[in-house]
Design a protein around this nucleic acid. Structure first.
Length: 420
DNA sequence: TCTGGGGTCCTAGGACCC
DNA sequence: TCTGGGGTCCTAGGACCC
């Protein structure tokens, strides 16, 4: 049977989450900044209309933000993650096969559906709006790539009213002509340049491109993208995502760090968080990479270094990871460097119940497992938390900037929305 | 002065094996 | 002077996604 895919995507997701809980922000130009208040990562419709770019450093946009009294917010991932969960839960009531593709997007398998697809798209929109307060757009097509195309056009056209079905549509050629080649899912900056050099500037031209040349220049993924534009689905719905291959935690510092002590504390905080994420996925890691770096945009005094530890037995024990991580930081530290960022990468992840044991293991693994469960249990309670001494006790000097963050309305009892 | 963070997959090349 | 063929595994780097 020929497949049908829908892509449901939240409009201006981070900005919209903020507007749901702050009515005074609705209808206004607002932007949300990345971690450390660095770049603009989300814009409301009104901010977009002012010509404020995506991914632009906040300091570069300062003039335009001030001039138009744009509301500027730090990112609030606790809020966005919770709102994302609500959207996905809502969608799961509308389809048996749902692939959560990103924080604000999901693919739905509509193959074999007898209902009118356009109507169904509106049902999705109405229910998500009613249950979460968020607006979504729905694009429908014979492949994921075409569902993406349809979704883009659904957002762009007022007439579509947020839903566009390109399945067997007589307008498909016209639709593909309206999508620039760099907007096609899977075509990045480098690929777009090469295609444009060959005169391929629209999705339609890409669909009709010579497949042998595509194979040579872009490999198998390029071929898949072209086939998908030709209505042959190459990427199935994956509603049972495979286990993670790696866990990364890294942050830019609010202020440069020049001493060993705060650098150790920062890395300790990142390792602690990474280990928590690891255990949330019931996994253990075989390798750990610690990296430290100075400002990557600075011309002078640049330094990047990293070190990788291989564990003889995969571990998810925060204490064990921390001990080795602190040794790394001491070796990586350089006097006189202004560190701006550091992080940890855990790789070689395995199911925590299928870890290859050691014949002579110096660590009591059962005891370590009980300790981690106890710590995680305590930290999952809203009123309690315990931390590792390596993270330090004082307010950290390296903490990322986020002075304009809204409240965690949906995940923190002390920050509930107040109505007067 | 100020410039995010977390992922996945593919490919080429080297090391090593018989 | 001549110097095979086929395979696996690992890693680094690039490209892409949101």
């Amino acid at each position: 049977m020929k497949k049908v895919f829908a892509l449901v995507d939240c409009n201006n997701f981070y900005a919209s989450c903020e507007q749901v809980f702050a009515p005074r922000l609705r209808g206004r130009p607002i932007v949300v900044l990345s971690n450390n208040d660095g770049c603009i990562v989300a814009r409301s419709k009104q901010a977009r209309a002012l010509g404020i770019g995506m991914g632009v450093p906040a300091f570069e946009a300062e003039d335009i933000l001030k001039k138009h009294h744009v509301e500027v917010l730090s990112s609030n991932y606790a809020l966005y993650a919770d709102m994302s969960g609500r959207v996905m839960e809502t969608l799961s009531t509308l389809t048996p096969r749902l692939e959560i593709y990103s924080i604000d997007e999901a693919f739905l398998d509509l193959t074999g559906m007898t209902e009118d697809r356009q109507d169904y798209g509106h049902t999705i929109r109405d229910r998500v709006r009613k249950w979460t307060g968020l607006e979504v757009s729905v694009g429908i097509g014979r492949s994921k790539t075409l569902a993406k195309v349809a979704n883009k056009l659904a957002k762009r056209s007022d007439k579509a009213d947020g839903v566009l079905d390109l399945t067997d549509s007589p307008w498909l050629d016209r639709a593909l002509e309206q999508i620039a080649v760099e907007e096609v899912w899977g075509i990045g900056h480098a690929g777009a340049k090469a295609l444009q050099g060959r005169g391929i500037t629209t999705a339609r031209a890409l669909r009709d491109a010579d497949i042998a040349w595509i194979r040579k220049r872009f490999g198998v993924n390029g071929v898949r993208t072209v086939y998908e534009l030709r209505q042959m689905d190459c990427y199935p719905i994956d509603d049972n995502p495979p286990a993670k291959q790696g866990v990364t935690v890294s942050r830019s510092f609010g202020q440069a760090v020049e001493q060993l002590e705060p650098l150790c504390q920062a890395v300790a905080a990142f390792v602690t968080r990474a280990a928590e994420k690891l255990r949330e996925g019931r996994q253990a890691a075989q390798h750990m990479t610690i990296f430290v770096m100075t400002n990557r945009f600075s011309r002078v005094g640049r330094y990047f270094n990293s070190e990788t530890i291989h564990f003889p037995r995969a571990t998810g024990d925060t204490g064990e990871l921390l001990g080795r991580a602190m040794e790394c930081v001491r070796r990586l530290f350089r006097q006189g460097c202004r560190f701006k960022r550091a992080g940890v990468i855990l790789q070689g992840l395995v199911d925590e119940n299928k870890v290859q044991g050691l014949l002579f293991d110096p660590v009591d693994r059962a005891r370590s497992g009980r300790l981690m469960r106890a710590i995680d249990g305590i930290n999952n309670r809203p009123d309690l938390s315990i931390r590792w001494a390596a993270q330090g006790l004082e307010q950290p000097s390296w903490q990322s900037r986020c002075c304009r963050r809204s409240k965690r309305y949906t995940t923190c009892w002390s920050e509930l929305l107040e109505v007067s």
